[in-house]
């Protein structure tokens, strides 16, 4: 818990921009995008207003989880360069405001989702918020280098929620999309944590490079890429997606695999020299955007 004395003992009234910053808008982009793709590939029509509301609820839920994460982690954030300017550690907002904002937004997103679409989607949204806040932030992050592996499930929920908002159920395809993001998260974050290792070490967060060193981390990145690629391509042979998606997924996964092998071969120890790691991290974001985009294109072309 937060025991650090914050730089500003009497934080001034937070601005609305500080509340917006609590929701981590940049992270939300990928969440909204994958939820939208899950919604678009679902095999049923949905009214555009309800589709918009469902995606808005996913965004609000993600924002709520991010706000609660920043509320709980303000002590860690204060110790890391990357996060020191967030509203709470920078002294622009008191912790209680962040807590109230996060809890309020959580309830709003779940109730609105239930009323606009269906209560199954609302329950999955609630589970994803609780998983991110309680399982990842409170339980795992400070205790185990597996924090990213299990916590990655929280970020894997959006396509499932998008699908459930349309159909009211979950079938094999959304589960495969969940699995893809779940297996994509470790290589994505470990590539990042390799070149911001000193930051995590300073904050005492047991990220894999801090605990086991860069060599083991590079091996784990390469290892996780294999099942991730299998999950990405699987919808094609299983008949859940067509060749447009299958070929794109295979090609993109091959590039991902080659970049992860470059990371495995890398011996760099200084962040400035970690070109392969930075390249993999940058590509991993493009990869997920492209895979989900191709799935939607494939579905709509076949339709």
């Amino acid at each position: 818990m937060n025991t650090t004395t914050l730089p500003n003992a009497r934080p001034i009234t937070a601005e609305w921009r500080d509340f917006l910053a609590l929701t981590k808008p940049r992270v939300m982009t990928l969440v909204v995008y994958t939820a939208l793709c899950g919604l678009l590939v679902a095999p049923a029509p949905i009214h555009p207003v309800l589709a918009f509301t469902a995606i808005l609820c996913v965004a609000l839920g993600a924002g709520a989880a991010a706000a609660l994460n920043m509320w709980y982690e303000s002590d860690i954030d204060a110790k890391m360069k990357r996060t020191a300017n967030r509203p709470i550690p920078a002294g622009r907002m008191d912790r209680q405001s962040a807590l109230h904002f996060g809890v309020g937004l959580s309830f709003l997103s779940v109730i609105l989702m239930g009323m606009a679409t269906n209560w199954f989607a609302a329950v999955v949204l609630a589970v994803s918020i609780l998983f991110y806040v309680l399982v990842y932030t409170v339980w795992l992050k400070r205790r185990t280098p597996q924090n990213i592996v299990i916590g990655g499930a929280a970020g894997a929920f959006p396509p499932l929620i998008g699908w459930a908002a349309v159909t009211g159920d979950v079938t094999l395809l959304p589960v495969l999309l969940f699995t893809l993001i779940f297996l994509w998260t470790p290589p994505h974050f470990w590539a990042l944590s390799l070149f911001v290792r000193s930051d995590y070490a300073a904050a005492g967060v047991p990220m894999l490079p801090v605990v086991s060193g860069p060599r083991v981390t590079r091996q784990q990145i390469a290892l996780y890429t294999l099942p991730m690629a299998a999950a990405a391509v699987a919808p094609w042979p299983l008949g859940l997606a067509g060749p447009i998606y299958g070929i794109a997924a295979a090609g993109l996964s091959l590039v991902f695999l080659l970049l992860s092998l470059q990371v495995l071969a890398s011996k760099a120890t200084e962040p400035a020299a970690m070109k392969a790691e930075k390249r993999l991290f940058a590509f991993s974001v493009v990869y997920l955007f492209a895979i989900f985009g191709m799935l939607v294109v494939d579905r709509w072309m076949l339709a």
């Binding site: 001034i12 009234t13 937070a14 609305w16 009214h47 309800l50 509301t53």
Partner: peptide, 29 residues
């Protein structure tokens, strides 16, 4: 800061009312 927060909150409340109205109409349709 308080003034800007109040204005943004008011705008969000109006947007919320419009959204709930639109959702109701959509569900009736």
């Amino acid at each position: 800061r308080q003034r800007s927060r109040a204005i943004v909150t008011a705008l969000l409340l109006v947007a919320f009312v419009v959204l709930v109205y639109a959702v109701t109409i959509a569900k009736m349709t």
